[in-house]
Simulated scan of single mutants.
Amino acid sequence: MTADRQERETLKARLTARFRPFLAGDLEWAILSPPLLPNSLQAHLARLPETRALIDRVRNDPSPLLDTLLTMKRQNLGTYFEHLIFFWLENMPGVQVRGKNLQVREDKQTLGEMDVLFDYDGACWHWELAVKFYLNAGDRMDPWQWVGPMKRDTLGRKLDRLFSHQLTLPETPAGQACLSRLGIKEVTSSPMVKGMLFSAARQDSAYEPGTTPLPPSLSPQCLQSCWMTLHQFQADSSLPFTHFRILKKPRWISPIRDFDDLVRGDQTVASAALAHCFQGHAAPHLILLARQDADHFTEIRRLFVTPNDWP
């Protein structure tokens, strides 16, 4: 066996162990979960019976999707999400992918890249892909007050870059030249952004589902939950869970599975585990709460728990 082949087999074995049990669920979430930003074409493609058939095939045999994951250059959540979407589009009848992560350059300078270009139903489409999780730290209607767990990103910054730069790249001279080299005269650009928003838990009530006002540019059907400090989590009596799991990327998007490595414990046990996490990395942690009924686990909620002085 050559060194390159051996390296590829080693990588495939590592990816298989890491992703295989979750691949069908992750693919289903990437395609069918509510978008953060409206995208009518995405909804149309997701409703096609061929989409459900593809997810079912991956559930029976995830090997083709694993082969796609072998092409990932980075092992992060954003790249993982992109490759799930690439795999979906590449395996949909009537869809022809024309390019992925196409760099747009001008005078040896990279202006940006177009995430995916594909032909469908007589038109060429340009999608910008992203998966985002934001916690609200102030005015809920202000996109700049929705911040990423590491506080390096905000919803406002993402929307600004998305609509003023990424989605307009095909309209620039350099973008037009890039499209021309592929024989493409015109594209329709739109966002394909998934994720979840987390509102601050009220002091007198842990969570009020469906009552959070959102910036007008967001889809009202997007996934929502809450975040709370460790003190709030310890004091909350509305979370009747029997098991939990502190999630790490890319498990943030995975639906619960009965074979998940859930930890049995109440708020005391979960709080101690979270406090231990904060000792090594004082950033919010996403925790999944579940209840066991006989041999079946039901997800109650997933929420961010933060250090007491966050943000």
Results as ranks from 00 to 15, higher is better:
Thr2Tyr: 14
Thr2His: 15
Arg8His: 03
Arg14Met: 07
Leu15Lys: 07
Leu15Arg: 08
Ala17Asp: 12
Leu27Tyr: 10
Leu27His: 07
Leu32Arg: 08
Pro35Glu: 02
Pro35Leu: 04
Leu36Glu: 02
Leu37Gly: 04
Leu37Ala: 05
Leu41His: 01
Leu41Met: 07
Leu45Asn: 00
Ala46His: 00
Ala46Trp: 00
Arg47Asp: 01
Thr51Pro: 00
Thr51Val: 08
Asn60Met: 13
Asp61Lys: 12
Thr68Glu: 12
Met72Cys: 13
Asn76Pro: 15
Leu77Pro: 15
Thr79Ser: 08
His83Asp: 09
Ile85Glu: 15
Pro93Ser: 04
Val97Thr: 01
Gly99Gln: 03
Asn101Met: 07
Leu102Gly: 06
Leu102Val: 09
Glu106Thr: 04
Lys108Val: 05
Thr110Pro: 13
Thr110Lys: 12
Asp115Gly: 14
Leu117Ser: 10
Phe118Asp: 09
Tyr120His: 09
Tyr120Ile: 05
Glu128Gly: 06
Leu129Gly: 06
Phe133Gln: 06
Ala137Gln: 12
Gly138Cys: 01
Met141Asn: 13
Trp146Glu: 11
Gly148Pro: 12
Lys151Leu: 11
Asp153Lys: 09
Lys158Gln: 01
Leu162His: 14
Leu162Ile: 15
Phe163Asn: 04
Phe163Met: 09
Phe163His: 03
His165Gly: 11
Leu169Lys: 03
Ala174Gln: 04
Leu182Ser: 06
Gly183Leu: 10
Glu186Trp: 14
Met192Asn: 09
Val193Tyr: 09
Lys194Phe: 15
Ser199Pro: 11
Ala201Asp: 09
Tyr207Phe: 11
Pro209Cys: 07
Pro209Thr: 11
Pro209Val: 07
Thr211Tyr: 09
Pro216Val: 06
Ser217Glu: 11
Cys222Trp: 13
Gln224Thr: 04
Gln224Trp: 02
Ser225Ile: 01
Trp227Gln: 00
Thr229Glu: 05
Leu230Ala: 07
Gln232Thr: 04
Asp236Asn: 08
Ser254Lys: 13
Ile256Pro: 00
Arg257His: 03
Asp258Cys: 00
Phe259Ala: 04
Asp261Ala: 14
Gly265Asp: 00
Thr268Glu: 13
Pro284Lys: 09
His285Cys: 13
Ile287Cys: 13
Ala294Pro: 11
Asp295Cys: 05
Thr306Ala: 04
Pro307Thr: 07
Trp310Ser: 03
